[in-house]
Computed example of a mutant assay.
Amino acid sequence: MVTLSADKAAKISTEAAKTFVESYYPSLSTSRSSLSSFYMPASTMPDGKPLPVILYNGNIIPDPTSMQSLFQEQMPEARYEVQNYDCQVLNPHYVAEGAQGSDPASGKNMTILVTVSGYVKYGEVRTAAMRGFSESIVLIPNPDLGEGTRGKVRKEWLIQSQNFRLVV
């Protein structure tokens, strides 16, 4: 069995976390119509629970489309300022259900925990109070990586689990 070196796993997970953070948080502010594209397709675990698991400030969001609708229709304008993030490889041998999986040496068969903290302003950005936030996200490799619709490149990593909390 070919295994991924710890150095290579760290490099791949760090780059995945960086790419994710630099694209996801700006989308929460300016491209809310694309939010569902950051998530794995909705499915069900063997015990009947939905995937992805999305918790937003203690509220269960049933699926990526609902998360996108929440931000487009109910959330005021927001500006996120990420202060720091970290990542850890959770499972170095992950293979998505129904997927063949890629070469283990490529590093694309892992799940990654990304923890993020920072500040968010809701409403009129100039006058809104700054609130702290903390978020834990599990990323999985996109099993359908390649060209997306209308020539858009699909994301390499997708959200499987997300837990966002405003800090008091």
Rank of each mutant, 00 (worst) to 15 (best):
T3M: 12
T3G: 08
L4P: 03
S5A: 14
S5K: 11
A6H: 12
D7Y: 07
D7G: 09
D7H: 09
K8P: 00
A9H: 10
A10V: 06
A10D: 12
A10N: 14
K11W: 03
I12T: 11
I12F: 06
S13P: 07
T14D: 12
E15C: 02
A17G: 15
A17R: 01
A17N: 03
K18E: 10
K18D: 09
T19L: 06
F20M: 12
V21E: 04
V21A: 09
E22S: 14
E22R: 07
S23D: 13
Y25T: 02
Y25P: 01
P26L: 05
S27K: 10
S27H: 06
S27F: 04
S27D: 09
L28M: 11
L28W: 04
S29M: 07
S29I: 05
T30R: 15
T30Q: 13
S31Q: 14
S31R: 13
S31Y: 07
R32P: 04
R32N: 02
S33K: 14
S34R: 10
L35S: 01
S36T: 08
S37E: 08
F38Y: 11
F38A: 03
F38W: 00
Y39K: 05
Y39F: 15
P41H: 06
A42V: 06
S43M: 06
T44V: 15
M45R: 15
P46H: 08
P46E: 11
D47I: 15
D47V: 14
D47Y: 13
